[in-house]
């Protein structure tokens, strides 16, 4: 258990070199138009991003990947990757997510040689699927012996702590304010991870219109420190 926990700490580190520090997923649009200005308004954005976007994309995808791995069906994993890619209508977040997925796959493949991870890496290399962070994380967590509950929760935690670090730089917020938020959002993380596991397939990729629009608008935001 301790060994697995230590491994997970590493995978969830917000300093993980996957390129996610370059992407705000539309947050920067809200910062530029002064909708997100402080810890409170950022928490509103982050809660919505977690509950209305991540749960229906990464959350459901993690669960589906676990189903597919338990059935030994890597073709299903490829299909989930393709669907995650094309449901992401804003170009920058779609390309950014792909880049983070690639970065994560490259790094995790250096750290671990789980057979599914190797096979998935080959599918990506052969362009038979589009890499996605939720899929890379789920396959790696599965290899580490995590339950699906742990996989979703830790993936959410890693994503959210990375976004908080980005917000600390961009809004900006104090480092302590960032840590307080990470502490405060824990119940919502657990609740959303639990909920994500019960969501039906038909909810896959549900859109939060405002978030999606801000991700589209980011292409034309004047001052940009993020690529999405």
């Amino acid at each position: 258990m301790t060994e697995r926990l230590l491994a997970l700490f590493q995978l969830c580190d917000s300093n993980l070199p996957t390129g996610s520090f370059s992407h705000s997923f539309g947050l920067e649009t809200y910062i530029q138009d002064n909708t997100v200005t402080d810890s409170e308004s950022f928490e509103e954005w982050l809660s919505c991003y977690l509950e209305e976007q991540l749960a229906y994309t990464d959350g459901i995808a993690c669960r589906m990947v676990y189903d597919a791995l338990e059935a030994g069906d890597l073709d299903a994993v490829s299909a989930i990757g393709a669907k995650l890619h094309v449901q992401n209508l804003p170009r920058e977040t779609r390309q950014g997510t792909r880049m983070i997925g690639e970065g994560m796959l490259k790094l995790f493949s250096r750290l671990y040689d789980f057979p599914f991870l190797t096979d998935y890496g080959r599918l990506v290399k052969e362009k038979r699927t589009v890499p996605h962070p939720a899929i890379v994380f789920a396959i790696t967590a599965h290899g580490l012996g995590c339950s699906r509950e742990e996989a979703v929760l830790y993936h959410f935690y890693g994503t959210v702590s990375g976004l908080i670090q980005n917000a600390v730089r961009a809004i900006p917020l104090g480092q302590t304010a960032g840590q307080m938020l990470l502490n405060r959002i824990r119940p919502l993380l657990r609740q959303t991870a639990e909920k994500a596991l019960t969501l039906p397939d038909e909810d896959f990729g549900l859109v939060a219109p405002g978030l999606e629009l801000s991700q589209m608008q980011h292409e034309r935001v004047n001052v940009r420190i993020f690529m999405s």
Binding site: Y30, E44, C48, D203, L206, G210
Partner: peptide
């Protein structure tokens, strides 16, 4: 393209930021 929109006002914060 895969586009999935659902408005279920009772269990969403329809008016809120991001929605």
């Amino acid at each position: 393209v895969f586009d999935n929109i659902r408005l279920s006002p009772a269990d969403q914060r329809v008016g809120g930021l991001g929605f």
